[in-house]
Write a protein that binds this DNA or RNA. Structure first.
Length: 670
DNA sequence: AAAAAAG
């Protein structure tokens, strides 16, 4: 099995690597004497065959390829083998003594030799498998190799701020801090100096420290690094830059960062004059990112190393993935608190991990709202302390939350996607995702906050039915199993509180007591990613939440020009009135959809649909689509109006692409 | 109005 996965690992080796290897005394042959482990089948192929290779699932050279050398590189398995491969003993000592690691992980084992040789890498490995060490060791080793006098600690005094040799870029400040902390442990016994350049901190303090201590490796977020490089008085320079690392590479290469990254590169030495190594690491490397990655690596000298075989997912089998489909958004928060309550209880069982959960929410406003709701209504009964983190907090608050959660044995961190990637909080037992994750990759990275190294954990995804279709296609192929034991998920909201689930009542009562501005912000944020096909459903389910669930007069007011921008122009049931929680914009609605609004509204939100399905999931499965579908969907707002037309439109749509979609759904586990 | 990232 091991052999097979190795074979499937797309791997390129280019001729230039061989002499370097020899020069560094890295004996390739020792691997055969050291152990009987299978060695990687390394094939040298022309770069033009790269894409063929990635799609072909085989590493055997074809006739068109030109094998230059048939080498079998060694794959060290223990850190104490690294000095024999040329890694400085003081670096290795930090790892084996200071950090207490013995065995290399799969990704470390496969990247170390090519990385030490100066080969550019695109490396993909599952979350929590030690990618950070995988890029830090070769980058730091290169510095020690170029200047052997840096091997001892007192050489630190020669470090300079204007001769930075390595840069690591991270998409978030907290991740940069974490990487820097790891790097500092590594260099503890050497003369290497690590500095950090992240936003939200005092630039002048950082510059003063860097001028005083010097810097070999700079760990940075893009904005601050760019700022430092374009400031002629900063004194930060990297004329001899030897390596640049993009951690979370797929994220760093996407549109949000591309411009800033280009600006940074333009201020660094021209690679034609000063060649440098580029390392791109991530747990997810979608196909379209591979094209972008090629612009970063040297065309004639790089490896693409995957420790995830084709067809496998970047998630861990040991982490169970549950989905709780909710009949409406109003059910989502009660379901969240029910899951938390039940899982806190399960964690009491002997042998269970203490309950330490990260709860990912789709917007800052929802982090605020849910965090407050938990503290006001559930914290005392549940007994588990909770923190929150998102980018709108001050950096001091963010760091405090992050540091505190790191040390907690049991606790909850309500979070936006700031902590979704790379963060290594020890012993997270649960990752709970609320609402549709922005994309497949983000789902995988969030889930990867649990089940790290040799640990286990579990994932929960709590979704409104409106978000099911998008998630079903986005998360296709992932082993996500429906959970029907959460009563709040299917509970009616429009019933007398005396007959309503207690947890629903508590949630709604607490929400009602939260400042209207918080509710309003959360409401607005839930329209951020709607599209033409689900906008009306979202309006309706949120209206049900506010009116039937919380017993408010209506939904928060939305400016009509904002509604236009959001693509809600043709949607009915929004509140364009002057009062924040008016009873809805009847005038506007009448103008748009005629006079039946009131009646449909009553029918939809009055909770009088006796035939509504009690099990939202049952009506979603591909087998029971049809009658159940209709019964289930009948709660929705004024569909009757625009009504029947849009309803049939939906179904017609489905019918057109029916076969293909059905196929995809069958591959999906929920 | 939507994660993040410069001030």
């Amino acid at each position: 099995m091991f052999r097979q996965s190795l074979k499937r690992c797309a791997h390129l080796r280019v001729a230039t690597a061989a002499p370097l290897l020899a020069r560094q005394n890295l004996s390739l042959l020792t691997s055969t004497t050291r152990s009987s482990r299978p060695t990687l089948q390394t094939t040298t192929i022309k770069l033009s065959n790269l894409f063929v290779r990635w799609h072909s699932e085989t590493a055997e050279a074809s006739a068109s390829e030109q094998p230059i050398e048939d080498v079998a590189p060694s794959h060290p398995t223990r850190f104490d083998e690294l000095p024999a491969l040329g890694v400085h003993p003081n670096l290795v000592k930090s790892i084996t003594h200071g950090m207490g690691y013995e065995a290399l992980s799969d990704v470390q084992s496969k990247t170390i030799v090519p990385a030490l040789n100066g080969t550019d890498l695109v490396a993909q490995a599952k979350t929590g498998t030690g990618k950070t060490l995988g890029f830090l060791v070769p980058v730091l080793q290169r510095m020690l190799q170029e200047d052997p006098s840096l091997g001892t600690r007192n050489a630190r005094y020669n470090a300079r701020a204007d001769d930075i040799r390595g840069i690591v870029l991270s998409p978030t400040r907290e991740l940069a801090e974490q990487i820097a902390a790891e790097a500092e442990k590594l260099v503890a016994g050497t003369g290497l100096v690590v500095q950090r350049a992240v936003g939200g901190t005092q630039k002048s303090r950082m510059l003063e420290k860097t001028r005083r201590q010097g810097c070999h490796l700079l760990v940075a977020t893009p904005g601050r690094l760019n700022d430092l490089l374009e400031d002629p008085r900063s004194g930060i320079r990297a004329p001899n830059l030897a390596a640049i690392v993009l951690d979370e590479a797929d994220r760093m290469l996407d549109v949000g960062f591309r411009g800033e990254l280009e600006e940074i590169v333009n201020k660094l030495p021209d690679v034609r004059e000063k060649p440098r190594q580029t390392l791109l690491f991530s747990a997810t490397i979608p196909k379209d990112v591979i094209q972008l990655a090629r612009q970063w690596v040297r065309a004639d000298n790089f490896d693409f190393i995957q420790t995830i075989s084709q067809g496998d997912t970047p998630t861990h089998e040991k982490v169970q993935q549950h989905i709780v489909p909710c009949r409406s958004w109003g059910n989502v928060l009660p379901a969240l608190f029910e899951v938390i309550g039940k899982e806190v209880e399960s964690a009491q069982q002997p042998g269970a991990m203490p309950f330490k959960a990260m709860v990912f929410l789709p917007s800052v406003a929802l982090v605020d709202l849910v965090s407050e709701t938990y503290h006001d209504g559930f914290r005392s009964t549940c007994g588990v302390p909770a923190l929150m983190i998102h980018s709108k907090l001050s950096q001091a608050q963010r760091s405090k939350a992050s540091d505190k959660f790191r040390t907690m044995k049991s606790g909850i961190l309500f979070s936006s996607d700031v902590t979704a990637r790379g963060m290594d909080f020890p012993n997270v037992s649960h990752v709970i995702q609320v609402g549709a994750p922005p994309d497949r990759e983000q789902y995988i990275h969030r889930l990867g906050r649990t089940g790290r190294q040799d640990k286990t954990g579990q994932g929960w995804l709590i979704l409104s039915e409106v978000d099911i279709p998008i998630c079903r296609s986005e998360l296709r192929g992932l082993p996500i199993v429906p959970n029907r034991e959460i009563e709040s998920a299917a509970a009616e909201l429009a019933t007398d509180p005396a007959e309503r689930l207690q947890i629903v009542n508590t949630t709604m009562d607490v929400l009602k007591g939260v400042p209207k501005s918080s509710l309003g912000a959360a409401y607005m944020s839930l329209f951020a990613r709607v599209n033409r096909s689900n906008a009306q459903d979202r309006v309706n389910e949120l209206r049900e939440w506010f009116v039937d669930g919380m017993g408010l007069e209506g939904t928060p007011r939305m400016a009509s020009n904002l509604a236009q921008k959001l693509g809600l122009g043709k949607v009915t049931g929004l509140n364009f009135g002057n009062d924040d929680f008016g009873s809805g914009n009847r005038d506007g609605d009448r103008r748009r959809s005629g006079s039946r609004f009131g009646r449909d509204d009553d029918r939809s939100f009055g909770g009088r649909d006796s035939h509504r399905s009690r099990d939202p999931f049952a009506s979603l499965s591909s087998e029971s689509r049809g009658g159940g579908d209709r019964a289930y969907k009948s709660y929705r707002g004024d569909r009757g109006d625009r009504g029947d037309r849009s309803y049939r439109g939906d179904r017609g749509d489905r019918g057109d692409r029916g076969d293909r979609k059905r196929d995809r759904y069958q591959e999906t586990s929920f």
